[in-house]
Design a protein around this nucleic acid. Sequence first.
DNA 1: TAACGCCATGCTGTATACAATAAGAGCGGC
DNA 2: GCCGCTCTTATTGTATACAGCATGGCGTTA
Lengths: 247, 247
Amino acid sequence: MDDQPRASQTVRTLLQLRELILNGDLSPGERVSELGIVERLGVSRTPVRVALVRLEEEGLVDCLPTGGFVVRAFSEADIADAIQLRGVLEGMAAQRAAERRLSRDELSDLRDVVGSLDALVRQRDLTIDDFSDYIRLNDRFHGLLLHLADSPVLKRSMERVLSLPFASPGAFVRVQAELPESREILVIAQEHHRAILDAIENGEGSRADHLAREHSRLARRNLDISVKNQRQLDRVPGASLIRLRRA
Amino acid sequence: MDDQPRASQTVRTLLQLRELILNGDLSPGERVSELGIVERLGVSRTPVRVALVRLEEEGLVDCLPTGGFVVRAFSEADIADAIQLRGVLEGMAAQRAAERRLSRDELSDLRDVVGSLDALVRQRDLTIDDFSDYIRLNDRFHGLLLHLADSPVLKRSMERVLSLPFASPGAFVRVQAELPESREILVIAQEHHRAILDAIENGEGSRADHLAREHSRLARRNLDISVKNQRQLDRVPGASLIRLRRA
DNA sequence: TAACGCCATGCTGTATACAATAAGAGCGGC
DNA sequence: GCCGCTCTTATTGTATACAGCATGGCGTTA
């Protein structure tokens, strides 16, 4: 429980409250009582309030007109929209990266990540650990893309969307680590990564944009597969995904 | 001062604090003292804190590692990025609107707005009131686009960017109501609006996307003109724009 | 029996008190 | 004379007390 005894109450409360929502301990639509959280987390109302306001801005809870907050319920359409939005933003990032003059280091960083991903995907059998590595490298690739875009405004906006848990492709990959489609999807994704790198190296901004958007359709496909195969999204889409993610 | 005696303290504080920042009463980089605001607005620390947290999420202030907040300083590059980002998001909205099945009412609403804008722009001499009307209709057009996209996620994201004051083309138009370039820009903008409407009517999503992005380059041009003509952006870009906006 | 109204309870919004910490000024030593 | 240390002060983080309000249950009446 006391994961971070050093952190301030506010930060700890924010993190724990987010966990609570993401884990489904607080169901979507459920009203979040300040006092209830106070009891649960053992802090006073003040940090809880701040955390709730932040989560509201983050989009995980909505505030009621009468006062107080409820856990926000996400529909499958919301998830799909977030994926699309993420793709669009990443397209902008890729385009900017391609049209910018990149330093030698920046380029080699990106090449390294793609190279590592290549090596990983080329393996015949992928263990669960390989999947973990893939996710880490994949996150690294997308983080690097955002960094290379060199736009704090864009970065901020992207972080907002990523804060919606389901928009992270990592979750889907995790969920589907044992699905037969998974390997194929990884291979395709890696082809995308290579293509995006190529576009950036050649300064083809428009192509980089297009490729990044196309890449996001993979996450959309993952979503569809999840819905069909596992019926995990019946009632609590975001939450169940995340629950699986940490299982 | 007591603009909204009915509203809650928190909302009033948020609005007033935002005004203070946007008007430049609090300079970028300046530390925002809670007690200072308490004195200035005559409320207790609690609503001030909440307002500051919200403004931090909104991007108008940054929180210091040591605690407390400072007014965020925006560079010209930030403004340009926000304009680009806004264009990208609006492109997504336009694309979605084009690829969606729109109701008769929705379409006629959009047509009405474009029609009104047409009538306005066709006039030979534009008074300052005409400019105000233009801005209102222009906002309406862009708001409608966002509505037609039918994506709460996208809407939320867009609102975040729009909250950066400078990203609103209205401010620029206002600033430049008497500049010789203004009329020309309005005419071009209106051509864009018509083209976007046309693309949506014909279900050409990709074209709508492209047009909307192109449209945002107008705002970028406005920014450049502002910088060159008036040197308003020397030190306090966002703030000075807004200051002019209400002059 | 059903509907209306009143009362009680629990909630949030707001204010303020307390504690810990960081910054700054002043003094002392080197 | 300058650097460093300490003490003071101001400011934030946290907790809690108070008030207003919405909600829900219960009783009464038509």
